[in-house]
Amino acid sequence: MAEPIRAGILGATGAVGQRFIQALADHPWFEITSLAASERSAGKKYKNAANWRLDEKLPDEVADMEIVSVDPTKVDADVVFSALPSSLAKTVEADFAKKGFAVASNASAYRMEKDVPLVVPEVNADHLGLIEVQQDNRGWDGYIITNPNCSTIMLVATLKPLMKFGIQNVNVATMQAISGAGYEGVASMAILDNVIPYIGSEEEKMETEPLKLLGEFNGSEIIDADFKLSAACNRVPVMDGHTETVWITMRDDPTPEQVRQAFLNFNPHLGDLPTEPDQVLIVRDEPDRPQPRLDRNMGNGMSISVGRIREGIRYVLMGHNTIRGAAGASVLNAELLHKQGKL
């Protein structure tokens, strides 16, 4: 049996950091060897520094690990998973890449950099070719790869199988769960009995990231996809699971049944990656599905459910924002890196 790949988690005490622990604790390829967090947590055992908020037990092997500072000289790992805030990630992730680490980032800091892969494995695995471009450009021994915004991940997974119909225009309205803002991100008195029709910088991310993800890698850069996209993002009082309503026009004007079949037939072969669900897209034919409470944990939280496919074309999609939309996405990216011999 091959030696496990040593994995570190940056920002290990936060909401996404805890999801990384959940995803990696019993992983067949990765072994958690370092947990890094702020200086106020460094030196403490994880169980004493983190307020564990997931609905399953904190793994024993992690509970007694000592947290180290977010410093490349302190972290013992081959790959690091970053759950850092974007403002900190801009500096720290580069420091790790310079020192030879592979950085699988959930942060937004480097997503739109021309030489940094922004990847959803089922959508644009070939964009990992940018790693060599990045290392040549920056002189790094390591590299950074990123996964998109949580809502973007759900959206592009449904747009990819429709690209063959010639996408011209996409409008999307999101209903995003409060966990996307972190435990203390939205005050209870602000969100209970309410919908907040604004999430800072979210619409800008959704309107730009899909064009890069669905663009063409020509060997040296990404040529963005050529269609228009408009987003309206709303925070709703749901714990986990982002729901999106999509309106789309396409050159070939497919029928709802053709769109449904395209979703059903979308089954990229990634090579038996442990985190990859059996079905990327689950089509729901019931008139009132998908729903977050009923569908967010499909495929261990990695499947995206699609329904209400109607003339127009209009449909509704839903996925788990902190699993498929965050930690699970970064872990899947790292699995693909390993499969391609890049770890």
Rank of each mutant, 00 (worst) to 15 (best):
L118W: 01
P72Y: 00
K90N: 08
E122D: 15
F96L: 04
G100M: 03
D71Y: 00
F81P: 08
K74Y: 01
T73F: 04
T91H: 14
P121I: 07
A104H: 14
S108E: 13
V79L: 06
K99R: 11
D115P: 11
P72K: 01
D76H: 13
P121F: 09
A63Q: 04
V70I: 15
E93C: 07
P121Q: 11
D78G: 13
A63K: 05
E61N: 12
V75S: 00
P85Q: 01
A109E: 01
K90Y: 08
L118G: 00
A102P: 13
A63T: 02
S82Q: 07
A97C: 14
V116N: 10
A77K: 12
L118K: 01
F101Q: 05
A109G: 03
F96D: 02
L118H: 00
N124A: 05
V123C: 12
E61G: 13
S82C: 07
S86Q: 11
K99L: 02
A63F: 06
A104M: 14
S69D: 13
F96T: 01
D95F: 02
E66I: 13
A97L: 14
E66G: 09
T91Y: 12
A83C: 10
D64S: 02
A94V: 14
K98G: 02
V70K: 08
K90S: 11
M112Q: 10
A97S: 15
A97Q: 14
K99A: 12
A89L: 02
S87P: 03
L84M: 00
A102V: 15
P121N: 11
P85F: 05
V80S: 05
M112N: 09
A77D: 12
A83R: 08
A107Q: 07
V92P: 03
V80D: 02
D95G: 09
E66H: 09
V68K: 06
S108I: 06
N124R: 04
E122M: 15
A83D: 07
